[in-house]
Design a protein around this nucleic acid. Sequence first.
DNA 1: ATGAAAGCGCTAACAT
DNA 2: ATGTTAGCGCTTTCAT
Lengths: 348, 348
Amino acid sequence: VVSIAQVAEAAGVSPATVSRVLSNSGYPVRPATRDRVLSAAKDLDFRPNRLARALVTSRTSIVAVIVHDIADPYFGEIVRGVEDLARQHDHQVLVASSDRDPVRELEILELMLAYSADAVLFAAGALEDERYRRESRRLLAALDAAGSAVVQLAPHRVRATRVTIDNAAAAAAMTRHLLALGHRRIGYLHGPDELATSRVRLDGHRRALDSAGVGFDPALVAAGGFTSEGGEAAAAALLDLADPPSAIFASNDLMAFGALNAARARGLAIPDGLSVAGFDDVPTARYVWPPLTTVAVPMRRLGRTGLEVALRILDGHPVRSRTIPTELAIRGTTGPPASRHDANPGGI
Amino acid sequence: VVSIAQVAEAAGVSPATVSRVLSNSGYPVRPATRDRVLSAAKDLDFRPNRLARALVTSRTSIVAVIVHDIADPYFGEIVRGVEDLARQHDHQVLVASSDRDPVRELEILELMLAYSADAVLFAAGALEDERYRRESRRLLAALDAAGSAVVQLAPHRVRATRVTIDNAAAAAAMTRHLLALGHRRIGYLHGPDELATSRVRLDGHRRALDSAGVGFDPALVAAGGFTSEGGEAAAAALLDLADPPSAIFASNDLMAFGALNAARARGLAIPDGLSVAGFDDVPTARYVWPPLTTVAVPMRRLGRTGLEVALRILDGHPVRSRTIPTELAIRGTTGPPASRHDANPGGI
DNA sequence: ATGAAAGCGCTAACAT
DNA sequence: ATGTTAGCGCTTTCAT
């Protein structure tokens, strides 16, 4: 409510000088003058209006993160990572949940443009949808023209710098872990099929199976939409098969949680009656029972690095896409198959 | 990158007219003119600069939510609730995690002032700290003077409209549930003690014990800091007591998850060897095993109502603080105590 | 080293 | 019903 003009008046200098002092632009100001400005500002409890500043500098210090759902722990962790670095750079985090709705996603992009966010971090995307490709391309171009840095934190076909994990390799590694334990019939809980992330993870799984000479059986794949409820239903379907799998690889942790429940509802002991593996390593993964074996995705680091890259782009430095390494977190839900599963009569 | 002036030129009208059409202010504009403006805007792919607009209207359509940690599922749900309503009103959500650090909290308030957020929703707070009371009061006053609506979603001693649950009553209800099952030695996992929420929940528990004529035993209270790790350690301490409790009431779900692990590490069956109850009903509460008995807090509704109230305040309507009702979600982790616990030799 | 003045893109009186 | 003008609060040439 107090403006730069009032501070200028109180300090007996011009608004320009106040600006120069307070935006610590490194502009030369006589120490005595600076002190007067500083104390006047303090006395008046002056707080520069960031929007007015943004209007002239065209830098808002706002970074937008587009997630699938902020209440999903995976995205919560990512946003936290972004926030941690944002704080250090005096940036503010705007979150928007798209629910993987392409229309909503485009709306969000429009908004970010209207608010001229300095950086737009795509953590979730449904932009694979053909109908929206053109539109999204247009918006991304506009964002670029407006000087915003766009970074994607998940595989997309959109052209933008990427900070991602190697989903296929990670999924393959987990499948190999299950294979090494002796499993031959491995159920797979697939995510939303329009999502590149889902497809890439499934590919990794399939390739690992192929390399091991274990046939990929489409009947062992059930879609669970990346939710616990979906995972429970999908796992139930697999477990009720005439020849059920001895292990289930859920392509995200929430689905793995659902699978655990489906198994228990059938009286299957974990991991003796059924092995279950997840993907992501959300915080609660250690707190289900037994602790979940999963692919540990450094979610916070993903978010943090995403912003780091965006900031670098804003500074005019060219930045290449990066891949963040993942690890397998082998915990209690995976083990060797029960003997009756050891051999697969009709298989391999 | 295209301004209102260019649209005006293309449509052959004045900038004012363009503004009147595009901000659908209900201002009378001849249909023919309106159409020309609309099509010019569309052709040029015009997107009004919200910051410029905010500068003159002093309405940013930004709502800030101050949480403890956006990666904590409780806060994720709240933010999602806020976001749901924000979308309907074309508002944007700015999140900031304070980690319950009073200093950080004040910084956030300063920032929200600098960005002139229309509404500031306090979901988490450590402002009980004496050293920061004065400062926070000053900032809240400034926010008020700046025309922002401040709403608190958790008990605080700060003066602002409140949208909260009745923490004490809810905690008392859960304690009575445990009492009704026959438990007499009930361990309690306390949250951060500086937090009003923690203290109020503990009060409710204690009062329920008192009313039932069951003495409150301070030795049965262990602090767990509202985290799973803390809950695990606190529960472990209680379970290792010479005369351990037959039930543990964790004052939030994350601590309950930790308690479940502590119990299992000691070979205690749930709920036969030990009953465990939580508070909040975060989404994963249904996916631990057995499904967690907990106090169902309508987190999304809390967030949604918080924004609703803020919006009403912004519209100049006086609004009274509200209490959102909660329910007990009795699931699988609570049951009657094992017989050896039925009687408590020294007690009642 | 400091000040004057213009202008970022928009809206809101105030004309007409 | 539409146009003109001033101005929101700041930064940034350009002078001095």
